[in-house]
Every structure is written in structure tokens, then in C-alpha cells.
Design a protein around this nucleic acid. Sequence first.
DNA 1: GTTGTATATGCCTTGACAGGAATATTTCTC
DNA 2: GAGAAATATTCCTGTCAAGGCATATACAAC
Lengths: 113, 113
Amino acid sequence: MTEIFAALAEPNRFRIVELLRSGPHPVNDIGKRLRLNQPQVSKHLRVLKNVGLVTVKPRAQERVYELRAKPLKEFHDWLERYRQLWDARFAELDELVVGLHKKEKINDRRKRN
Amino acid sequence: MTEIFAALAEPNRFRIVELLRSGPHPVNDIGKRLRLNQPQVSKHLRVLKNVGLVTVKPRAQERVYELRAKPLKEFHDWLERYRQLWDARFAELDELVVGLHKKEKINDRRKRN
DNA sequence: GTTGTATATGCCTTGACAGGAATATTTCTC
DNA sequence: GAGAAATATTCCTGTCAAGGCATATACAAC
């Protein structure tokens, strides 16, 4: 999981992933669109491939890179476990607790958890 | 966005975030549970705070750190834009297109995009 | 096979960052 | 106010990764 984050933490790699969201692209195409030197594009793509975020398919001399669904879905599933944090229902509950806390000086339910 | 990734790319910071999912914790508590030295915990928490992933509330000498909903929701929203990649419907459509491609030699719809 | 195009790899330098240890700061207790 | 507890900050060192540049490899067309 942290490997995925590390891969996406690099701004240019992030841009590459965003570009690939529109579909597969060959290396040179990526370089031109994002104004990156070819070697750096290849290196970034290697990193993305090593963590499983992309796959390659050769087409003549070209190498066409494509986003992989699986790691992104796992990523999404992981984030789902945090949903309670921003769900409206939870937020309201949180407000309620804060209110009670102010008025009645009860212990915060999170105390020492 | 990439700042969030960078923050979560560090394994110990990731563990801290996972721990905080269960609710707010003071620094020392985090250190003991994750077997980390106190200075490192403080440093990691500072990074998490700088990118907006956590907030602090003082309680006597303790500093209680808590996850923030907003960046996690934004994170989630960003990932939603990739949903098409793993949605079953899309996968089926993809298979269909591949099938047509093999049989009829039509152009791949992604070609040269 | 030679040339041209597309991509990958290697080397080098530089900057960023994590952990360890020591120290400073804040707040509580008495 | 003195000492203790909890946390933050600083300095140091080693490691790792990114970009620039040169070069190697793969495939194509003739």
C-alpha cells in the first residue's frame, strides 16, 4: 500500500497517471504532452509498473502503457474504511457530542481511547 | 494531492494514520502502540499536520491528535474519477471491444488517443 | 545489413528525508 | 518556584531517489 503512495507522491508520475486515465498512451506521447524528457518518462513508467499501477503492450517499436484496475480498486477499498470520518451522519453525531461536552462537561467519548 | 501521497508513503506515518482511524490519540500512546521513539512520532505527526491530515488539541501536557475528514474525502473524490476502470460494466464492455477487435480487426478505440 | 525511430538503461550529482541522541519547551503537581 | 511528565525541536549522519546526459537495445523500412 505504501508503495502505491510512494509512486504517486512524485508529481510527474502523478501527472502521468492522470494522463493515462484517458486511456493507454505510448512513451513518447506522454513525454510530449507533459513536457518531459524521454528517459525520465521511461523511468517513471518503470516505477509505476513495478508497483503494479500500469502494464505495457508493445506495438511495433512503441510501448503502450495502460492503467491497471486492480490496484486502484484496492486503493479505493482501503479508503472506504475511512468513510465514517466524512459521512454526514457521523459529522452530525460529532457535533452533538461536542455540544453536550460544552454544556455538561461530560468526558469526551474519545478520551484515552 | 501529491503531498498527501508523500505523507502516507512513509510506512510509520501510514501506521499512525491507521491507528488514528480508531479515534484520537495522544503522542505517547501512539509511540507505545507502534513501538516508535517519541521524537519520531512527533516528527511524523508534524508532517501529517502540515499536509492537513490531522489536527491537535492540547489536554494538559498531552497533545491529542485526530484525523481530519476533509482531505480524506477529497482523496476519495479524486479516486472516484477512476472508478470506470474497475467497474464491472466497464470491464465487460472492454472485453466486448477486445473481442470485436480480434474478429473484425477494427481499430482499438484507445489507439493513439 | 544499414539507417531511423522508439524506448530502456547506466552513471553522476544533488537534494530531501528518516532515524538516533541530546536538548528545549510546555504544563501539571506539590 | 522546583521537579516531573509529555511533547517539540535541533543537529548529525546515512540512504535513497530524481533529473540530466550519454549510451545501449528493440524494431522497422528499405
